[in-house]
Each structure stands twice: as C-alpha cells, then as structure tokens.
Amino acid sequence: MTESNTAAISINQVSKRFEDLQALNGVNLTVRQGEFFGLLGPNGAGKSTLINALAGLLRVDSGTLEVMGHDVDKGYRQARQKLGVVPQEIVMDPFFTVRETLQFQSGYFGIRNNDVWIDELLEQLNLADKQDTNMRKLSGGMKRRVLIAQALVHKPPVLVLDEPTAGVDVELRQSMWRFVKRLHNEGHTIVLTTHYLEEAEELCDRIAIINHGQIIALEDKDDLLARGLGSKLVVRATQGISAVPGELKDKVLKLEGRTLELSLHKDQDSIMEILDRLRAAAMTIDHVSVVNDSLEDVFVQMTGNSSAESQGARR
C-alpha cells in the first residue's frame, strides 16, 4: 500500500472495559488522510478513551488501532511519530517555561534545533509574549494553547484535538480555528472532539457520533444534517396568542406572548396547512420563519441527550 491511500486512522473492533463499565464496545472507524473529522458524543460516551487508546496511553482489551498504517502497539514508534494529541485535561510541567517545554517536547520526538517552527507555533497561538513565562504562571486558556503547540512540535500528519476550545475565549478560539484550518489546508488530518456543536458543524467534513462506547452514526456532515427529523416553524402573531388549535397542540415547542414555535416533521407536515389552521383559529400572522435542524438537534435526537451527563453502558 502506498502512503497516499493509507488511512490516517484505522480502528478495528476495539473494545475496552473499566471494571463494570464497557467504555468502548466494538468500535470501527476509518479516518481518511486530509479529512477534518468530528468525533461527537455526550459526556462519558468514550471519546477520550478512544483517543487515549489511539495515542497508546491506554491498552485496549481487543481490536487494533493504526495511525498512518502503523499499529499503535507493534509499530508504536512510527505510529506515535505520526500523531499529535491535545489531551482533554489541562496538564503541565511546572518546572519549565513555555519555550523550554516546547524545546524538550521537540527533542523527545528526536528533533534538535526546532526553534524556527517553535517560534511560528508561539506566534500562531498568540503565546509569543509568554514564551519565557513559567508554565505555572499561565492562565488556563494559555496552558491549553501550549498543549496545542506541544502536540504540533513534530509536525504530525495526524492531529487529534480532545476538546481544545474548552476554556478558551471567543477571540482566541477563532484565531485557533484559523490556525487549525490552515494546518488542514496544508494537508494535516484533523480529528476533533467538542461539545460546541456549531464548531463541529462549521469545521468538520465528516462526523461520527459515539454513545455508550458505540459508534451510532458515521456520515458526511451534510448527510447527517439531512437526517434531522425536520425543522422548526416560528410564527409571530400581531397580538398575544391565547390558544392553539387542538390538532396542533402536540407540535408546540414554545408559546410565549406573540411567538409560537412548532416542530415541523420534514415528511409529514406541510407549512401551508399549519398556517391555514392557525388562521382558521382567528390568528393574525405577522411574521413566519423556518429554522432548519442544526447539528445539535440531530445530536440530541440521536443520543437522546441534551449534552447533559450520561452514564456509560453499565452492566
């Protein structure tokens, strides 16, 4: 097989159990080179467990994982050389400055004199003025950006970001995404987990949804969005709405003053019909809008979870 058609990440039948909890349950997943891939799922779904297994931080019970065609166990040296991981937890070595941290990390990957690339990373991640500051004295968001820089010191073709934007302010988040997009354009494969679904919706080409240690959806983003059950009809009346016709009662999402929100099933409902019913009930309609399902809606429908705490598949 040539380098170019090797999968960036290939995960085969991977299972992992923590005592009484099946954290990963027969996961299969392939990420192609050059993809911007989203790995979504509620808290405790198994995202970080899967990433840790890929990074060799964790041994799985069965199945295999490969990075650029290298088994993460048998070919761990090559696999790790090709992989950059930004861990979910903010961690640091309190003995060193930002620059020292990055220099050591470069050396660990066998790279000497990496200062040109380190300078660029510091610049791109807005850390240049903090480079001689001790890690202990950085804010949380700065520490997270150092983690991103650390993951990139060896220019890995595959970059995995486990919730990189948690705790990063809006402006920096945007500059961070600009940088990640640039890396993507330069050919890096990016895998992202995030609970900000708008981010995934905007950035990712393909998305997997994982829940209770199983992949429950794996599709192009657009197909996944099209799988949404429908959309939302927002009607504004000229006066306060007091009652909704009986046959529409089930569809009401929200009724507040002059605004009525109804769920709209994409196959079963007709907007015209609904509006006719409302007019028949003597409502004077001022304004109508249709809001399509976002990734968040699809996500909630599929995982039955509004991103709140979920228990793993306990047995």
């Binding site: 990074a55 060799g56 931080l57 761990y76 040296r77 090559q78 696999a79 790790r80 050389q81 992989l83 991981v85 861990p87 937890e89 961690v91 640091m92 070595d93 309190p94 050591f104 990390q105 660990y108 990957f109 066998g110 650390q150």
Partner: peptide, 15 residues
C-alpha cells in the same frame, strides 16, 4: 508526573 498529569508528555513521544 503522574500526580500532575504531565506523564502524558513522556508517554506520547516514541521513546
């Protein structure tokens, strides 16, 4: 390194 979590920095590289 274990307690601080910085163990990952030496577990990720290909030593």
């Amino acid at each position: 390194s274990k307690v601080m979590g910085s163990l990952v920095f030496i577990m990720l590289p290909p030593f």
